[in-house]
């Protein structure tokens, strides 16, 4: 009796895992069009969140500024085989030192960040870091974790209130990612920069300077509050970029960078 039970138990367990293994070989994700649905959700969400920033803040459309930032994003995209068209860069007037990524490739940069950067490669570093958050799908991961999948769906279907949309916008612009995601974005940014022949050291300098500014002007420097432990990050960025090539060249000409600085409004 005992033996019969054990034999049948073994067969049943094997049957279960056999069926499980076989069924897991099927590509259900593409069969159920999961990717298309996810992409659609991300698309709607990104556009909706950008709209909320656009409505509450002033967009800077100065051609020199917009064109220069576009060439930075283009250069990084080309050097790393990214779809350049996916990145939608927006420049906002504000004295806040901040930049952040929204779903669907929206990248928001404040004029305060450009004015605070002492070298253009510092700005390129921050842009590279935010592009890494976009490339590595960090933005959606963070939203799902902080806001929840069901709420995100309700935002895209329009059944969520404006308060929830604002909360999602605030989450992305002024709260930190997980440490591990930040480190990944930093390391990726160094790769992106070196692939584009840009020196990553100024990016580390920028973080180091922010860590000093932390105690002095915390109200204006938002990027530091969303990116804590800047000193430690500067160190591992330098460590990681130590044995990369040294034949670096900045993306913009010195003249363009200077005229960018002159055109800044807040």
């Amino acid at each position: 009796m005992m033996e019969k039970t054990l034999t049948q138990l073994l067969i049943t367990v094997l049957l279960f895992f056999g069926a499980l293994f076989a069924l897991q070989q099927v590509n259900w994700v593409s069969l159920f069009k999961v990717q298309q649905i996810t992409d659609k959700t991300e698309e709607k969400l990104g556009d909706l969140l950008w709209e909320t920033f656009k409505a509450s803040e002033t967009e800077n459309t100065n051609p020199i500024l917009v064109k220069s930032i576009d060439s930075i994003v283009s250069k990084i995209s080309e050097a790393n085989d990214f779809d350049k068209e996916f990145f939608k860069v927006h420049l906002l007037n504000s004295d806040e030192v901040n930049a952040f990524a929204l779903p669907n490739g929206h990248l928001v940069i404040y004029t305060g960040l450009i004015s605070d950067a002492e070298h253009q490669d510092e700005l390129v570093g921050v842009i590279g870091h935010e592009m890494a958050h976009i490339q590595m799908q960090h933005v959606m991961k963070k939203l799902v974790k902080e806001i929840g999948f069901s709420v995100l769906i309700s935002i895209t279907t329009g059944s969520a209130g404006g308060e929830i949309v604002k909360q999602a916008a605030k989450t992305l612009s002024s709260s930190a990612f997980d440490r591990s995601l930040e480190k990944e974005a930093d390391i990726k940014a160094v790769d992106y920069l070196t692939n584009a022949n840009v020196n990553p050291a100024p990016f580390a300098d920028f973080l180091y300077r922010l860590s000093l500014a932390d105690s002095q002007l915390p109200s204006i420097v938002s990027w530091i509050s969303t990116h804590p432990d800047s000193k430690e990050r500067a160190e591992y960025i330098l460590e990681y970029s130590k044995d990369k090539s040294t034949d670096f060249k900045s993306i913009l000409s010195e003249k363009t960078w200077e005229s960018m600085k002159e055109k800044l409004t807040f």
Partner: peptide, 16 residues
Amino acid sequence: FGDETLTNNYFGYMIT
């Protein structure tokens, strides 16, 4: 509610 995503393994398990 968490950070799990829809995978072939998930669908395979649910169907089993």
